[in-house]
Nucleic acid binder design. Structure first.
Lengths: 218, 218, 218, 218
DNA sequence: CATGAATGAGAATTCATTCAT
DNA sequence: CATGAATGAATTCTCATTCAT
């Protein structure tokens, strides 16, 4: 019926394809320079299209930025969502840590984009942090608390435990450049990724398990 | 004396004072928006002086940025330097963790400034990362390795251990905004700072100590 | 027939209909923002069609503008043309004033479009002003002069009299917004339109008639 | 005390001088092309300074526009304010008409600027129209009404009378270009200005005075 | 007929920096 | 020491117009 201003209703292949190209390029650039530090021309160049054409798809820089953030957000939180209250804590948390490391390895730019956004005070996603994210974290914190109450993991602040997992895993993507400078290896190398994941999982699991584990554990 | 450029060798109190004001303001702004994202006017406003006057002290934006980085660098690495090979690992590492948490609490902006710089590929301090920093880290990694060899701490990659300490401690300053959104508390609150420090120390020390610690522990 | 450019001599109903839609919308927008100030997208939106389609009918913005101007011009001058040298001045002029007021009421946008064009120096219709318009005005001025010579209306500059009629009648359309602000009524309200017409006619006729009118008046 | 952001506190001569240059140039350009149609570069050129320097004085185009409007507004309404309820209507109104014609002659651009603004719906000064202007007009309408009640001028709608005066006088500035095309004379010619003033005053005074004026008139 | 895609000239700002006093 | 004035190179965004289907 009215197809004049409802736009994006029937986005063509080429439309969707170009939007995707832009979003990918944007992720790369924004994750490095932040919102303000990024110039539209950079995105245009990386995405291989003219600035004009780019602005045909996204009217303003901020629109691109928000679109990228939103696109990543869901999958970014997925691993945390996947933690099951019914599972074994070592299995569940181990899987979570490995998933986070995997993401740090396969999508380091997404991680850095969030890091950047939060460093700047999360001007665009503050409502998400205080809303959905807080809700999710609080919920999983309860799961952890429950495991602690049952003695399956050491008693500690569940929130701080979550922060520790975030910190250690994301460190490999966010500070990749520093690590490269020190070790000469990058998280995007698959091998080094495994090594890091192993290391983090090992350290944290040991840190959170009870001193004298019940003998009947697998 | 040589008065070619240092004609005003004996900078007035007011001069030194103003430089300091600028550096403090710069730290605040740069740590939030990064180099590119920061505007000189912002610094001028935060430092409470006119842009013109500010540029009287520092000819260019980059000069300020470098000055801030340099000023923080030394004290930033100090705690790591302080780890003594001769000490007890638990004491030494515990102290290191607490020192880092202290810094996250008292100087979160410094932490964020480095985070920003590294996220952007460390354009200004790359040589420091690959030089002095790498040297220092490698050296301390050897200390850790030594303790492992002696069975005082669990065997693991010493570098990854250092990264884990950095990650967990700095997380509280770098992601302060996110934590505030979730917990409603900030690392700059002294009380929360202690809580975080306690939590991190507890988790990491447990994670790195041997499974069956000598009975005489605490 | 010649089909070099007029291949579609027999424009479809829909075509003619769309052209009309565009012209109407253009009148609305151009009359408000002037040529430069009007954006093609605005016209597209008001006319309810896509910019692409609009440009299918008119290759360039200027074409639309000229088309609108031309379409209005003829009927805009019609009332003045209708003044008959043979009629009674009070009847003729009264009719002219009422016709102008009627147009101000029924087609205020046309009036504003001309106002805009002339304010900007009449870049598009200057030749019409100095040509056909001047000719027509001069001719009617002579008619007025004739009436004055015969003592039917007070002696005054006939050109200024015409300007006065233009000014007072068109004021209601051109400054409609100001009048609305002051009186809360708009010239497009039929009732207020009559009131204004009555007032203008009354004032001007009294102003132009001889002091001591012949006793046989009305 | 605080002299950092309160700006414009102590505007230097050069400051005030440049601001004035800009405002004058702006009046010329805005009055012709309207707000949207005017390009900052045009103003810069007319004012004889670089666009950059211009933007040093006014951060945005709209700021200039508003400044010009405000600067003219007061003196624009002054003649109407000057109408005294205690005076003789013919004297007062005659003076008002001549003052308005004088302004049309000496400041035609100001008139055109307002015309433009009102044509566009008065986006910037709507509050002034419905506020101070309406108040002033209503007040003077009462003065006129009073004169009518006393039989000093013909009974008619006082508001419409004011509109008629505005219309006829401002017509000479707003439609100057059209008049030039027809008569070859411009309102800025002093001689033609007087002629126009004489004509308007004559027509309107005759139009508004009672048919048989009291014999005792001076 | 109609529209989606693309473009490039231009227009408004922003911003670091220089100049002059 | 300090500041007001001025500048020019970016940078974002606008807009008429063209292209291709």
């Amino acid at each position: 019926m009215n197809n004049k201003k409802t736009s994006k209703t029937k986005s063509t292949r080429i439309q969707e394809q170009n939007r995707q190209r832009i979003l990918e390029a944007s992720l790369t650039v924004f994750s490095r320079y932040g919102f303000r530090g990024t110039r539209i021309d950079q995105i245009a160049e990386v995405s291989g299209m003219s600035r004009s054409n780019l602005l045909y798809y996204f009217k303003r820089k901020e629109d691109i930025y928000r679109a990228v953030l939103n696109e990543i957000l869901a999958e970014w939180l997925e691993p945390l969502r996947a933690i099951s209250a019914d599972g074994d804590p070592r299995i569940e948390i181990g899987a979570y840590i490995r998933a986070k490391c995997k993401m740090a390895s396969s999508a380091p730019e997404a991680s850095r984009l969030f890091a950047n956004e939060i460093l700047q005070g999360a001007p665009m996603i503050n409502d998400i942090l205080t809303g959905p994210l807080k809700t999710l974290v609080d919920e999983k914190a309860k799961v952890l608390q429950n495991w602690m109450d049952k003695g399956q993991i050491r008693r500690m602040s569940p929130h701080h435990l979550i922060f520790a997992i975030w910190a250690t895993t994301q460190h490999y993507s966010d500070f990749d450049h520093q690590i490269k400078a020190i070790l000469g290896k990058s998280i995007i190398d698959e091998e080094f990724g495994s090594e890091a994941a192993q290391s983090v999982e090992d350290l944290l699991l040991h840190g959170m398990l009870p001193r004298h584990p019940e003998p009947n554990i697998d």
